[in-house]
Design a protein around this nucleic acid. Structure first.
Lengths: 286, 286
DNA sequence: CTGCACTATGAATCGCTAA
DNA sequence: GTTAGCGATTCATAGTGCA
């Protein structure tokens, strides 16, 4: 029950390339972000044209790397869009540039499987139901607390838990909107297994006017996995502040940056509306 | 019930870059293949080093493009491996080169979610449970018969949804027949639904001694979707001949190429052991 | 037909040791 | 230092058979 004393969230308005200039080297423990995608969202972000995307992103990533702690991670959620029947290549090019030009280590690529992706039928493609989530680090060693993100096993595996009644499992069912189970204390000892690098999460609905749907469970997974209570988590494209919500839920400090004042206001509002973490859940996870 | 008269499979031993020289322009309707991955399989393929992978692949892709019909598709299943804590980049580089140097159109990227991925627990990553499946074409127009791959909600699926709790909606359930899986929740109340670009398949068991597990359901999906009965399907890295098996099952002609005579023998054997298509299933699919 | 028990197996990765 | 080779280790799931 060692409560972490939470400061107010640090929400700053501006382009992260400028704002981060004032952030000290190595002071950020984890970066989790979903940057503006290609040119689709012109109204919201100004629309970075696909052929300028890498050049736009790279100087910002320099600041990300500088401000990130030696054992920190950079989680990048992104998806190339289709245009004239083809997928753009800027995501592939960005990954290569981050590794080869900036020295990031590409540890792994997670797949976010969006279970309830928007319906629709096109003559030349199916519904797009996934997005990239790249895991970059600065060094071979980084925080990776696997026991914090165990999930419930599939039914076939649960045969081993036959002693337990079905109702027990229903009681530990995931919260609405979260495909990843909250590993609270009463789940421990049941059938919890390690996840793989494919994350099955529903895209969130009702995202408070922000244009990019970003379910709480996505940053939650990485915040729990790659940071500890009291750590500083940064989202340079904070949007509606979902990463910040997760930070408040789990006792992390939050630095959110967004170029639009309206988004920054929304970040603060959602932080206020989120109940802070009451106990040190990390101990229970062990 | 219009049976397609099937020729014997055309299995040729050699490097596809040489063998394809004798194949006429535009004579192949669909290419489905899983090339040798990075340097892992030295015994089987000679092990292409990651830093030479793109240069090794590109001249072969030239032949793929030349022999492919104008409305054909090229399906490429591949996965970069991890090495010293990092994922290699040759897959990203290959995709860019295929598009920008050779003029392929990258229509979409499917994700093959391997439900039974290889075991292991490491300090810095989770189990790898997915592979890329890239869809390339030569032109904007291509065969895309979506109704052939609609997914049925199995009766057992609906029953289970009734009997079990919320947790069951997190899982996927088997489709009757092809082995494609679907999220239960999306199936409730519907008989046939279109799939998304995330394919949930288990890796195959008992793959007859070949090193690469390539489940029948994977090429089957693309053969049904992107070719018609009587079409010629080509696999330039045929391996154990799983693509050929699918061709016999669905009344397609097959051109299989492999550098190892043992694999070619295996391809023929598996073709022989596969019951040919008896009826024109295409009509039923509508 | 359901439910349960048991078993087989999957394109792997890390880290150490030797050259 | 640097690389290459090899061994030890890892676990969720599907599938099958039987009560």
């Amino acid at each position: 029950m060692s409560s972490v004393v939470l400061e107010e969230p640090d929400i700053r308005t501006g382009d992260c390339i400028d704002v981060l200039k004032k952030v000290p080297d190595g002071s950020v423990n984890l970066i989790v972000t979903s940057p503006p995608y290609g040119a689709q969202r012109k109204d919201t972000y100004g629309g970075i044209p696909p052929d300028q995307y890498v050049d736009w992103f790279l100087p910002r990533a320099v600041e990300f790397k500088r401000t990130l702690a030696a054992d920190g991670s950079f989680i990048l959620n992104i998806k190339e869009h289709a245009d004239s029947g083809q997928r753009h290549l800027y995501v592939h090019k960005l990954v290569i540039a981050l590794v080869e030009q900036q020295g990031w280590r590409l540890v792994d690529e997670f797949i976010w499987h969006k279970k309830n992706s928007s319906p629709g039928k096109w003559p030349n493609r199916f519904r797009d139901a996934w997005e990239h989530v790249f895991h970059f680090t600065k060094n071979p060693g980084f925080k990776f607390r696997q026991d914090q993100v165990k999930i419930q096993a599939a039914a076939s595996t649960l045969n081993r838990a036959k002693h337990l009644g079905v109702r027990d499992f229903e009681m530990t069912a995931p919260e609405t909107g979260s495909g990843l189970k909250r590993c609270v204390a009463n789940c421990v000892g049941r059938e919890l297994v390690y996840p793989s690098n494919v994350l099955h999460l529903s895209a969130e609905t009702g995202n408070q006017g922000h244009s990019a749907a970003y379910p709480v469970a996505l940053p939650e997974f990485f915040v729990k996995l790659m940071s500890a209570p009291g750590d500083l988590v940064m989202d340079p494209f904070a949007g509606s502040g979902t990463t910040g919500v997760v930070c408040r839920m789990h006792g992390r400090r939050f630095l959110g940056i967004d170029i639009h004042k309206e988004n920054c206001d929304l970040c603060r509002k959602r932080w206020e509306q989120t109940p802070p973490s009451e106990n040190d859940e990390e101990a229970a996870g062990q």
